[in-house]
Design a protein around this nucleic acid. Structure first.
Lengths: 181, 181
DNA sequence: CGATCTCTTGACAAATATCAATCAGGGTGG
DNA sequence: CCACCCTGATTGATATTTGTCAAGAGATCG
């Protein structure tokens, strides 16, 4: 379980290029996808400083009765992650994907600001443009240009890895289901 | 749980277009993604004749002790589905996605045939080209053209919704990556 | 201060989306 | 039984988008 910071889950495709599967933040459980196959099919690396802790599956200890509540919550967590994974925009429009991603980030790691009576979300990106592209399925340059376009449209403000955006888009609420309680 | 046939899970995006999230076949569990949020965020429709049955969550019955084995298996199933969902090719190359999809279909609903000493997989597609496109994230026409291209490369044979292909993916994936249009 | 990495921008090539037309197959009704 | 129609599949022409290559700007680190 990630306690703080950001962990990047990725795999390498046949051409040796990196494909990012997930960015995990505080409260996210890692490795649930391997409980079934007993095999971890992807790599994980910390982006900056990260704190983690280990958890035991509720049915992993032999001489101990199954804790129904723990079991139920584990299934719920897996279920929630699955739902987020299923609904994640696949391909299509890089710009829309980026918007959704930023909305999700704002919900997860955004700081709320007040400026001239308007509410903003401030995001400090823990990953590079290249990694965002590897996550969304597009080239690094496309991420740059999409950010620029969103800025020209007045939807956000970009300063390196710092992003300032107005009220996050609707879709963020759905994706936000991944957030811990 | 799907007992036979094919169920299409889909949602509608902001433009009213259909986006297919999953094709479920015999043995697949539906609705696991809603155990966490208690809300089903997608629609389901049968493609042709389908048989299903209902299952109870192992912790759903109040005055009954939790069955550890059932619980463990539920988590494993959710975990397996999650892993498949995480590793599903996102965007990138429609042709490669289609190949992967066909390989998966062959594994799920393919019939093995023997012809002139060579082994083939025969697949009867339960969905339209449009639905395949909505699943892979590309246009209907691109699905057609990709199928045609694979046929010209001798990797498979297309007759309407019936597809005949040789030894599933592995070698085909690598060969397809370098083959000319 | 140079070296290196990331980010950005431009120009071009390649791929797909879109639009439009045609074709094939199955079902329907006369 | 056959003409008809309707849906899904296919193919072609064109426009749009993105990937790729290249170069430069900015930041960070030693």
């Amino acid at each position: 379980m990630v306690r703080s910071g950001c962990v990047k889950l990725y795999e390498e495709n046949a051409n040796g290029e990196e494909r990012v599967l997930q960015f995990a933040f505080a409260g996210d459980l890692l490795g649930l996808e391997a409980l079934g196959s007993q095999r971890h099919e992807c790599h994980a690396v910390a982006l900056g400083n990260v704190m983690t802790c280990r958890l035991l599956a509720p049915f992993g200890v032999p001489d101990e009765p199954v804790n129904a509540e723990h079991c139920r919550r584990l299934v719920q967590r897996a279920s929630t992650i699955l739902q987020a994974c299923m609904h994640r925009s696949r391909g299509a429009d890089p710009l829309a994907s980026l918007q959704e991603f930023l909305g999700w980030l704002a919900h997860r790691i955004g700081r709320e600001l007040e400026r001239e009576g308007r509410r903003y979300w401030q995001i400090q990106l823990p990953m590079s443009r290249l990694e965002i592209g590897a996550y969304l399925g597009c080239a690094e340059e496309t991420v740059c240009r999409s950010l620029r376009r969103l800025q020209r449209q007045g939807q956000l403000e970009v300063r390196g890895r710092e992003i300032l955006m107005e009220a996050p888009p609707r879709a963020a609420l759905l994706a936000g289901a991944t957030a811990p309680r």
